[in-house]
Design a protein around this nucleic acid. Structure first.
Length: 110
DNA sequence: AATTTGACCCGTC
DNA sequence: AGACGGGCCAAAT
């Protein structure tokens, strides 16, 4: 795969601030790769841990991508809660709504 | 070389 | 809320 694209994805993931979450597709867009959410997932997998805030990346509907049985599912929820993100039923609360409200008040672009 | 497999997404019904 | 079809595509079978 294109190593340049990989680097841009990594950068976009790193750019997600503490206490916030972003969707795979969102990251892809921010990396200049619209429609390539799956590539983001793949890059994250290959990257292993690599000190990346991988746990801040969730599905577009707010659900954690890993199946509940998977060990990483619990780990992701734990690490998110540690940053103050509310996770219920394997799903993130607030984040998307909060972001939209911010945009409504302050205008687009953050 | 062909098919299946994913840490996915979106519009539509 | 869920289902369905189509898009996406590198790796692993």
């Amino acid at each position: 795969m294109d190593p340049d694209a990989r680097d841009r994805i990594i950068a976009a993931v790193r750019a997600v601030p503490r206490g916030q979450v972003a969707g795979y597709g969102e990251i892809a867009r921010r990396a200049g790769l619209p429609g390539r959410a799956r590539l983001v997932a793949r890059v994250l997998g290959d990257a292993g841990d690599r000190a990346l805030p991988w746990f801040r990346i969730v599905r577009s509907d707010g659900r954690i991508a890993f199946p509940p049985a998977h060990a990483l599912h619990a780990e992701q929820a734990t690490r998110l809660r540690r940053e103050g993100v509310a996770v219920e039923g394997g799903r993130v609360r607030m984040a998307r709504r909060a972001v939209q409200i911010d945009e409504a008040v302050w205008g687009p672009r953050a």
